[in-house]
Design a protein around this nucleic acid. Structure first.
Lengths: 265, 265
DNA sequence: TAGTGGTCTAGACCACATA
DNA sequence: ATGTGGTCTAGACCACTAG
């Protein structure tokens, strides 16, 4: 850096607006450390697609000179993004934008596992994929205006040929133009991989609410069980960059040979 | 530190055995960075009770001089322990051993939340607390020898007076001598708080497997619902320092007004 | 050999809590 | 005023990857 030698430059300025202490400011305006501002700038670049999933981002040294901070500060920003599973560090190679196509990450959003044996990839059978105006609850959850278009998808997930989950999804229509049952069915790999590659929508995080419910006649038929059979109902809201909700989903899972796994830390 | 000035001391030595490259060693013996060795040493101190839950551990500078490393290295070790919720940093005050008594941490192991309103404390009604020889499955999960003593506990959890969970727990008898229904019932606060304060067993982490099942006659009676009502079955194994299993638990949850909440990152 | 991330150190200064 | 954790920098060296 080019500064008066052993005197670190004042924080609060990084090519970006945040946290400028104009005059005296009230008591203290938020205060965000430099590395967090850098994190925000990197997130913005990701959001606007400057670096695509699977690609390498610039090296730490390069980002440091771009943002006019030390490597250590960039490092700490990237540390947090890597902890959030948004970036992926590979020693000797670089830092990469995480993608839903990687092998090791395929079960991050698929918590249903067989009671014995290793987790296995599920097969999708799509029942429906249509566009319609958002029901009020869907609009509320996805933060759309009433009447905005949404895509509704219904599918059956099977493990080794046995149906185990019937699922319904809602997506904002504006983000998923041209999504059809054919495209869904023809795609190899996880659905979030398709969303990411074909529509530029990357799922970052999700909240789930889980309940036990009795199978309806129709759900029971799809799963080949008796009506009233207890099913695990998993309601998910998934978010992309900036905590914007972009998927609402309800899964009904048969848990006779599978379970939902979770770890509490 | 007292070392030849601008030449960082060789890693691999920190008052502890790990990762000593005797001669040449095969290809490469694990290799654990210094801060991870320090983390291990701190964990050992915690495990042996050198610092108790709620207490402050020595300052970073103090630990640095004790372990003969720089503050930054201790800091990184503590960073990881704080991320694991094992330590708690409080700026200006010190670093503290996490405890199950704190307000903010009371819902870390209680994932059942009311459908509307904020999470609320549950009341326990203890049905049973007795010592017996471990059934084979319990022995296997808790890594006991067949025939070792275990404590079996059964209780009902109620939210605002309404029964919502019937729960059965198994604990290693050797660690919980003198645990009785009276002591459980007389204790104010979370059960893990009692385990920690009265028996020196601190729960660090847990794995859960969740299924939907039909209520048995007995469980239905306890919960005031019809037999066959779908219940959420939550099977938990909880671990203390060193990933030693110290609790096996099965909860059956009524999810008509509550749900199990989870976040996927 | 060069480039990338990973570790370790040392020192300065900031923010917060307490006495 | 002092002590604690929190941030930032600068530089050296290690570990891994690839041309």
């Amino acid at each position: 850096m080019s500064n008066p030698p052993p005197s670190p430059p004042a924080p609060t300025e990084a090519g970006a607006p945040p946290a400028a202490p104009a005059g005296e400011a009230a008591h203290r305006a938020a205060f965000s450390p430099l590395y967090r501002q850098i994190k925000g700038l990197i997130l913005q670049s990701l959001d606007r697609g400057e670096w695509k999933p699977g690609e390498a981002i610039p090296s730490e040294l390069e980002l440091a000179s771009r943002f006019k901070v030390s490597q250590g500060t960039v490092r700490k920003a990237i540390d947090e993004l890597a902890a959030d599973n948004i970036l992926l560090r590979r020693q000797g190679k670089g830092t990469f934008v995480a993608t839903h196509h990687e092998e090791g990450v395929r079960f991050r959003f698929m918590r249903l596992a067989p009671d014995e044996g290793d987790p296995v990839q599920s097969d999708s059978h799509f029942l429906e994929c249509r566009r319609l105006r958002a029901p009020s609850e869907v609009a509320r959850v996805l933060e759309l205006r009433p009447g905005d278009a949404v895509v509704q998808i219904r599918r059956i997930l099977s493990f080794t040929g046995v149906p185990a989950v019937v699922e319904e999804l809602w997506l904002p229509g504006a983000l998923f133009r041209g999504l059809t049952a054919e495209r869904l069915a023809g795609y190899k790999g996880p659905m979030y991989g398709l969303f990411e590659s074909e529509f530029g929508v990357r799922m970052i995080r999700a909240d789930e609410k889980i309940r036990a419910v009795a199978a309806s006649e129709q759900d029971a038929a799809w799963l080949g069980v008796a009506p009233g059979t207890p099913l695990l109902q998993v309601d998910r809201v998934a978010f992309t960059y900036g905590d914007r909700p972009v998927e609402m989903r309800r899964g009904l899972c048969l848990t006779t040979r599978h379970h939902y796994r979770n770890s509490l830390n």
